[in-house]
Amino acid sequence: MSSVAESKVLLRARSSVCALYGFALVALALAFTHPLILLAVAAATFGAARLSGVQHQLRGAVRFAIPLALMLAVINGILVRDGVTVLWRFGELPLFGQVDVTGEAFVYGLLLALRVVVIIAASALLVAIVDPDDVLRRMRRSAFRSALTAALATRMIGVLTRDARRMDQARRCRPDGGGNGRRAQLLMVGSVAAGALDRAVDVAATLELRGYATRVAPPRGDSLPYSRADRAVLASALGLIALLGVGVGFGLAHFEPYPRIAAVTGLTELLYAALIVLAALAAPLIGERGRRR
């Protein structure tokens, strides 16, 4: 969970509706390749992050995603021989055979890269706005073992990261610097992994001692009523899901990369993209305005 002061709508709303909202954005990015729609989802994602004060978390994720996305674009350009507009002819290359870079493969590669970046950014938004503690609490009632594993895993990430940092410092304290290269790295990884088992046992013991396994249900009718923030985010999430259903169901924003790029872009697509941005930003915008009043 973000450490940003929880005054923003997406950080105030309950985790279930925030998760729905985040998943809807990810699903939209997965469902469409049309550049206009991908840009709309990107605008919606970064806009929502900005309005929620978690943009720095998205920046970190995008920084990680860009090299991966560019590699994908290059590979697609080199390996895919579809498309009719040949930009460069490299001739016969060992392992690759005849290599022609076509304009269509190049553009489609860039679109795939954009899609990867948008998906990772939307996932980062999902992680930033959903409270993992609340998710575990809710999951426990329906999927106890999965929730237990998830609780252990989420806690262990932090514990092992700190363990690895400390062990690396200890390695540097050795007179020989602990050695460098693959063998030293392997020793370190092996040592952290060996310690992970002990640490996981300790964390699991704590879960037991706090009564996690007792599975006592809270009293009936004890759930909180939906707040204004919950309702706003739920409405946005349902709007996004409805748009996803309509777009996929009616085949809107059709995109065909090969043999020639065909991206249907008319008023419908423009309107559709605008609706995605509006639906996504409605909750953070309206929620904050309502709060200020």
Binding site: D131, T154, V159, T206, G211, Y212, T214, V216, A217, P218
Partner: peptide, 27 residues
């Protein structure tokens, strides 16, 4: 137990203190 690093299982202090109470099914 001895090591406080492995004695907390939730993300925030408030959630950590609430955790054992929720596990008892309290309102």
């Amino acid at each position: 137990l001895q090591d406080p690093e492995t004695q907390v299982v939730m993300g925030t202090v408030g959630a950590e203190l609430a955790f054992p109470l929720e596990n008892r099914g309290l309102s």
